[in-house]
Nucleic acid binder design. Structure first.
Lengths: 228, 228
DNA sequence: ATAACGATATGATAATTATCATGGCATGAT
DNA sequence: ATCATGCCATGATAATTATCATATCGTTAT
């Protein structure tokens, strides 16, 4: 094995390498490129030719599209272990969304041709990928339906709960999104995101210090998210 | 080859069998079950254990979820060649949506364990499935974003165009959905679907005879869908 | 035949949400 | 320093959409 290849130590290796024989793992590993991105930097640009299979080692990124009027629509927030390029990567040769870093992030890029070659010879990897892609697609679709059926306050509550419980695992966190981006995520206007946050603050559900949010009353927030 | 197995003649065989060696194709083929459903019948019920890999030979079906308030949300309309169970099938052991027939339909059900076994030994099939799943997921997500950014009239126009141009390939067709179901698909109320249709009729864009729709002015409908 | 029901349809009104205007407060550029 | 710019914030108003009430029509059950 290539001694310069540290994939065996990578905290993500299980996702990929658990299903691969050593020789294949080495091929992937030696072909990989790690890239670091600062907050705000573009990782993938919509319309770009797909060459790499990208996953996120650390940080936080947003996937989004720009519509005809130049407005952005955020598709999802991806955290480490998520396969950033997974959706488009097998369906087309160009990305149909962009990805930018919400926090300083590190990606690991694997060569797409290598991946294809290995899949053809390795059924376990294929099943593994099918499963991950299936989970991802399911999640995105269910989230989308979930958000759609809520009122504005419920959408903002939903987002805050997501950050608290599934990303930062804390009642207090710094929002990685601007108010505008939150609006782009849940399909409402910036003003109404701000208004909802202000109302939550006035009702004693949150404390807000700029981008830092402290959830004071998790239960109420939860019931607003479910319907209130 | 099993002489009773007519998969070689199936119009769908290309989707599956083009990537399989004969021996595997025979295994799949002899394990398949074809099922016929009348309009309105349930094909898959949310929460049910997944045993089969289902695809649609003929007809038209809706995929939908029931939310906590008992309301239905339609995820998509699937037409022949679509892999009805594709989304959940690799991610979980239970369906998280239901499928019912909008028209008389025939499905072909393959044994999921067989599929898994064969994928492990057949990389081309795996890549083929990955690609199809990727396309499907992409489409669902982009459609969802597309619908979300439109006003109500635009959503109804979008739906009508979809039926005319991608399903029935005609300016005149019989709606496979009730007004209520159209509303559940695009996230609006039944009354407003009806109102939009009535307005299109008054404006001379459509002729409506119950469930039969004739699109008189395709261009106007298209511009309403895009934004108007 | 008649009653009951669900789908279609329309209007009036209420609720929700977007848009527009304005101002404060940071931050970075000149 | 001050200027411009991009968030954040709030209020007033307009637009959009949902809800409620009511009626018709067709179908099915009795």
């Amino acid at each position: 094995m290539d001694p310069a290849c540290s994939c065996e130590l990578c905290e993500l290796r299980g996702l990929f390498f658990e299903s691969l024989k050593k020789e294949y793992a080495d091929l992937i590993c030696s072909g990989k490129v790690e890239k670091a991105f600062k907050q705000g930097e573009t990782i993938i640009k919509e319309g770009t030719h797909i060459k790499d299979f990208v996953y996120l080692k650390s940080g936080l990124v947003k996937l989004y599209r720009r519509d005809d009027n130049g407005r952005e629509q955020i598709i999802s927030i991806a955290k480490p272990f998520d396969y950033v390029s997974l959706l488009s990567v097998f369906s087309t040769d160009r990305y149909n969304y962009s990805v930018t870093a919400l926090e300083d992030s590190v990606t690991c890029n694997l060569n797409m041709d290598d991946i294809r070659t290995i899949i053809k010879q390795n059924g376990n990897l294929a099943l593994n990928l099918l499963q991950k892609m299936s989970v991802l697609a399911d999640t995105l679709i269910l989230d989308s339906l979930e958000i759609r059926k809520k009122h504005l306050r419920g959408r903002v509550a939903f987002l805050l709960l997501r950050f608290a419980n599934e990303i930062y695992f804390s009642n207090e966190f710094e929002l990685p999104l601007s108010r505008k981006e939150m609006a782009e995520y849940v399909g409402m206007t910036t003003e109404n995101v701000i208004r909802s946050l202000s109302e939550f603050r006035k009702d004693g559900i949150l404390k807000i210090y700029g981008k830092t949010i402290q959830i004071v009353n998790m239960e109420t927030l939860r019931s607003i998210s479910e319907f209130g």
